[in-house]
Design a protein around this nucleic acid. Sequence first.
DNA 1: TTAGGGTTAG
Length: 710
Amino acid sequence: MSSSARTAASKCKLPPLSTNPERPTSSNSHSSTKLSSFFTNQASSNTAIPTSSNPKTSPKNPFPRAPIQTPLEKFLQANCKSGNITLSEALDYFDHMIHMRPPPPMSSFNRLLGGLVKSKHYSHVFSFCNKLTASGLLPNLITLNILVNCLCNMNRVCDGFVVMGSMIRKGYRPTTVTFTSLVKGLCMENRIDEANKLFEKMIKFRCQPSVICYGTLINGLCRTGKTDVALKLHEEMNSGNGVRFRPNTVTFTSLIQGLCVEDRIDEATSLFEKMKKLRCHPSVITYGTLINGFCRTGKTDVALSLHEEMANENGGYGVDCKPNSVTYGIIIDRFCKDGMIDKATELFLEMKNRGIFPDVVVYSILIHGLYYNEKWEAGKALLHEMIDSGIQPDLVTFNVLIGALCRRGNVKDSRDLLKLMIRRGMNPNIFTYNTLMDGLCLVGNLDEARELFHSISTRGCEPGAISYSVLINGYCKYRKIQEAINLYEEMIFKGVKPTVITYNALLTGIFQMGKVQDAQKLFHEMHTQNVLPDSATYLILLDGLCKHDCKPEAMDIFHSLENSNFRFSVEIFNCLMDGFCKSGKLEIAWDLFHKMSSKGLLPNVITYSIMIHGLCMEGQLEKANGLLLEMEGKGCLPNVITYNTLMRGFCLNDDSTKVVELLHKMSERNLSPDDSTISIVVDLLSKDERIRKCLDLLPTFPATSQLRMP
DNA sequence: TTAGGGTTAG
């Protein structure tokens, strides 16, 4: 037994645990990931396989259950649900428990496993389950549910299904919890259609989705951009018809009516109860039919109480499947992240109007959304509203506020907030430190960021890949590439796996310094570190290669991407086209421009501006002007850069009439000229006195008084 | 005793 477990045991006055010679010395011995052993290694006891289909009676534990709660059980009850148990304590207790005779009840094992789930030690839960069966102990339905949940959280949803299959074979009936875990697992793997199908299937399986299950699916839909579908589902819950694909109110009402007509009032009543159990909302017609039936059969008092029930909200059923603060929070969060802050606020008001009180999570979601969408005053007001409602900010709220201040470059107040949370007895977490470090980097205070980075481990947290990436990004932004590379090497040395974001930051920095070979070397290193490049990586790489005269290399990569299933972005085309235009290879750029549509991409204002620039450089002004008309015709509005580009072209060609014409067009579009426009006009004036007359149109632009020539 | 929501880096 480890000293930590001993301490924990003494704390809760547990009897000393006997030393188990077989106890593994390291956590690695628990890390078996084979599913098969869990199900096949049951030969030690035939009684381990339940024979009855009744889950309440089927699994017979070969050992008698302790009649009263032991100190061990009390300890587990007190510490597991809160997650107040360390991994090493859990390992020790588990090893002790499986050797106890008689063994503790399965609920104690489940509590212990639950504690590990709380601290996200999924693989350990998995190996504990394997050891349980290997010891001849029988996991019960809840143990299996915990296992399904762990597998799903480990992105092993397929194995989750295998466990469900085994569950059924053992005579257990999968529960809403089982299905919810699997729905979540599918959502985590972005298999939202399958999650939706499973949701429908569980209803067919007569397993009612709970509000948690709805919440899980709604979250999956929101995460995959299907907010509309999520909203519809949410509304479906709210209307009381929160369960799909089953007999509905109309079918039930018809049957009740039929039974009432035949004076089979008892059967009608039980059908009515059944529909409520199935969360099928009886309508006023259903009630009316049944009330009529009771009245007809002389049961007026029952009819009256039914009438009373109608008056009560929901009649007391279906309530647990109504939207709650969690389901609202999920959708509000999606709207915030999609920049639809008005929609988010609207939904927040709706939930309050429906009597659903927002909790600290919903407040934090919306406060974050408001700050993130630069609605500072509204964010502040909401924070005050939350506190006035008696809800205190929690750790995440503080992190949101620190992040908001950092984004505004207000590091001083962020630091004060950190001090405040510590004064309040709150332990800042790695999010807090990473956020603050990023804020410090943003304002160029790299030394303080580094200092904070080094102090993280003394503050009870460990810097992870994000901490390193934040600092690496800070160094790269301020062109301190060597420091960034040193940090990168340090993270590898310390076993912290760099992410694609780490590499993207480094590649950007290295290309900025013009070190093309180093960047290429790093790009290849990504493979050795098993980090897959994403579309941002390819954009950085292709842009860097193009800007540093390595277009053939860029095109090689482009072609290899074409041969894979890579999803091209407009930005990738833009960077290549820009590169070729600027090096006078207009035809290649033109080919790329035409290739875009075959990749399902539409040119944007930047694409057109690049091509217009390329054409102007080649003196193909008419064609450039044609492209301007084309983009306007296709609803892609030119911006000031597009006009400047084309005007510069005409200016160089001494075509002042065209320039003036374009200035008029700009004015019509309410586009303000920028410094570049001004310099074009000045150039033009210096060339041709007659152009002075164009000054007449200048007052139509805002903020152009400075342009008036003496 | 088991299942859902919020905060950090390009």
